[in-house]
């Protein structure tokens, strides 16, 4: 019952924020003109171009990216039995970034559709490389804190490699890479949006097929195996899926921090449960709402430099949640 109410409220909130993102922005556009633009009435005006070609893709991207990262974080937290796991903190986003950096900096001439495919593919390979390191260590070290440290250190190593690539790259490609690295939901064109939507929604929908083994994994490896879960195989699939979700978002939006780590905790607190059949939809909606909120906060303080980097906003939401969870870990009883 509580879950149903929370899901309905989250869906309403997501819709409201989606609309809010279309009406609010760094340029003031009267509400009437926004509605006209959306109804296709004034397709020549500047406000129509801003709404349809800038705001709509950015708002949709923020919702999709928020959802995908939050789901990736949830899958990682259960797969690694670690409440502090997440795509950015454990270096998965850095791995994806290294993949993207290789394409952007080493082969800046790859453009167009093939450039997209190359960026996503290399982001995926980079994410999986880090994921493999973590998976290998997770079977060696039992402590969740140690695993976290390994993830953070792997992140430093990939950052070092990226720094090196930057050092040898031309200044134009460095500029574009640095902008990408700040994180932004605004860099997806209207033409790319269907691709991002299809990838995020199809990968996100796959998560629900893992609800049953994920619940068993909450009891730990031995109990999960005793409930019929092929633990090694399921864990590998979970890591591939969360790596793919992270890679898709990172390829288009840059490495986005904290959403993947914090949102699953917000969702758990809201529905008061850990059962994945309920937690997966709650996390997806909560992630979309959080992405939208970050997008609105990054565009509203209009200034000469345009939109703020998303990564300047996400820690403001993520860090308090993580501190709260750490402090109340025993009492919350969800971890």
């Amino acid at each position: 019952m509580r879950t149903r109410i929370v899901l309905i409220l989250l869906a309403v909130l997501t819709i409201v924020l989606f609309a809010g993102g279309l009406f609010l922005g760094s340029v003031d556009i009267p509400a009437g003109e926004v509605i006209d633009a959306l109804r296709g009435k004034s397709d020549e005006s500047i406000s129509s171009i801003i709404v349809l070609e800038t705001r709509l893709p950015a708002v949709a991207t923020s919702a999709l990216a928020g959802m995908a990262l939050a789901l990736a974080g949830l899958l990682m937290q259960t797969a690694f039995s670690n409440p502090l796991a997440g795509p950015s903190i454990m270096g998965i986003s850095s791995g994806a970034s290294l993949g993207v950096a290789l394409v952007l900096l080493a082969f800046p001439s790859v453009l167009g559709a093939w450039g997209r495919v190359a960026t996503i593919g290399s982001a995926f390979l980079g994410a999986m490389a880090v994921m493999l390191v973590l998976a290998a260590f997770s079977s060696l070290v039992r402590s969740s804190t140690l695993l976290l440290i390994v993830g953070i250190l792997t992140g430093y190593l990939t950052s070092a490699a990226i720094t090196l690539l930057n050092f040898f790259a031309s200044s134009e490609s460095v500029h574009s890479y640095v902008l990408w690295g700040l994180g932004s939901f605004s860099s997806v064109s209207l033409g790319d949006l269907p691709w991002l939507t299809a990838l995020c929604l199809s990968l996100g929908a796959m998560a629900i097929f893992f609800a049953k083994p994920l619940d068993a994994l909450l009891l730990g490896e031995r109990y999960a195996a005793n409930s019929g879960v092929e633990v090694g195989r399921i864990r590998t699939l979970l890591l591939v899926l969360s790596g793919a979700l992270t890679a898709v978002v990172t390829a288009w939006c840059g490495p986005i921090g904290f959403i993947g780590l914090a949102v699953p905790h917000i969702a758990r607190l809201l529905i008061g449960s850990n059962a994945h059949r309920r937690l997966i939809p709650a996390t997806a909606l909560c992630g979309a709402a959080t992405g939208l909120l970050c997008q609105i906060l990054s565009t509203v303080p209009a200034n000469a430099y345009g939109v703020l980097p998303v990564n300047a906003i996400t820690p403001l939401i993520g860090v308090p949640v993580i501190v709260y969870v750490l402090l109340r870990r025993k009492k919350l009883s969800f971890t």
């Binding site: 909450l218 009891l219 850990n274 059962a275």
Partner: peptide, 12 residues
């Protein structure tokens, strides 16, 4: 099986 392994299932 029944063990005393630590779990993350406090929310179930």
């Amino acid at each position: 099986i029944v063990t005393t392994d630590r779990t993350m299932a406090g929310g179930l």
